[in-house]
Every structure is written in C-alpha cells, then in structure tokens.
Amino acid sequence: MREGARILGLPLAAWPRILAPLLMATLLLGGWEIAVRHLGLPPYVLPGPVAIGGALAADLPTLASALAVTLRVTALALVAAVTTGVGLSLLFSGSRLMEMTFLPLAVMLQVTPIVAIAPLIIIWVDNVQAALLICAWIVAFFPILSNTTAGLNGTDRNLADLFRLYGASRWQTLWQLRLPWAMPFFLAGLRISGGLSLIGAVVAEFVAGAGGTGSGLAYRILEAGYQLQIPRMFAALALISLAGVVIFLALSLVSHLALRRWHESAVGKEH
C-alpha cells in the first residue's frame, strides 16, 4: 500500500468507513429526538434517545449484570456450536453413512423455529441456564456444520492428488490440506453463528421468562414492559443490538487476522 497522509495514525482513505456510519447514526438519533419532542410523544409510547440514555445510565448496574448473563450464555453456546459443528463435519466428511444418518436430524433442528422448541427444552431440562444454553446452541451450530462440511469436501482435486502422489497419510492430508482449505468456509460460518447464538440466547430467555438475580437482558425487557418503563426497555434493547454488533465485528476481526495473507476475501478492495 502507498503511504499517504494520515490523521490520528489512520490513513486518509480509512476515515470515510468510520465517519459515514457515525454521521448516519448521529442524523438518525438527532431526527428521532427532534421528532419525539416536536410531536410531544410521551415516553411510554416512544422515548427519545436522551431519555433512553438517561435510563441506561440510571439502571447501568442492573442492565450490565443482565448483559453479562446473556453474553455468558451466548459465548458458551458459540463454543459448543464450534466444537460440535466442526466435530460433526469431520465425522461427516470421513463417512458418507454418518452424513446420511445425521444430516437430516441437523436440518430438522435448524428449520424448526426455536420459539417452538424452547418451551419443551425448558420443561425437560431442570437447570434454566443449561436449557438456555441448549436453545442458543441449536440455533447457532448449523451454519458452522454446513459451512465446514462444504469446505472439507471441496478440497481442490489436484492438490489432493498431489498429496496422494507424495504418499501423504490420512492424518497429514487432514491437517495440512483439508482443514486449512476449510478454514475460510468455517470462519464465514462462525460469523453467522456468533450473531445467531445471541439471538438464540435472547429468544430462550424470553420464553423462559426467568427472573431473579441471575436473569438476562430479555427478562429485563419483559420486566420493564410490565412496569411500563419503556425507556429502560429501549435501553436493554440497545444493549442487545450493541452486543450483536460487537460480536460480529470481533469475529470479523478474527477472520481477517486468520486469512489476511492468503485469502481474497480478507484483502481490501483497493489492493
């Protein structure tokens, strides 16, 4: 890359990518606040960003601990999704029979809406946290499974022949060819699954409606709704979206760092 002018250590060309969404957000929030004030909407119908910010600041300790609870379920579900997704796709790519046996089951789990299964899981599993985890995992694991399987089975034929020609063992072929080949596919699945496990966790919390000290953000939304504390409801909602965006950005960064030297998807458009 050519060295150009820099502002605050960032190249000039990188700034629009940061400034454009910020400007958009500012305009949107400003317009919202003005509209709420101008139309004289009461906060229990639609609070403005200032009121929401106030609620967020006032209830920060409760909301933050609720966020931590939800994020914990999300993270555990994502770890479980990665482990089982990658494990199953290794099994599937090693044996057609396994794939034929278990793939339909995985597809069924994927296409059945989680809100429909969640009540059953919550009834069957005594431990609420475990039930939430299972729900979030069901939503999150499929993209990893299907993407990684596609990657493991899509190895370049000539490269596979090359490995055969030089007498590579199954193990060498797996570690040095098929897994690296599947890496971009897996990472694409991971980015989708990160967002999905948050959604799964929140949906399950809604269904469970679990209160008490260990409750997550969804419960705080329900609670605020019952009490007609609409600004707090919005504050919790904002935290969930923010968490989703952060998860997506973090996983995108992981993906970028893992692929930056060799994969086209990780190379900037201007190169």
Binding site: D156, N158, L159, D161, L162, Q176, P180, M183, W262, H263
Partner: peptide, 12 residues
C-alpha cells in the same frame, strides 16, 4: 508432477 494449474496451497 506439474499440473496444468500451479496448484499451490494459498495459505503457505
């Protein structure tokens, strides 16, 4: 063996 395409591992 030299294939028609370079057939290199892009990650190496």
């Amino acid at each position: 063996f030299v294939f028609q395409e370079p057939t290199l591992m892009p990650w190496q």
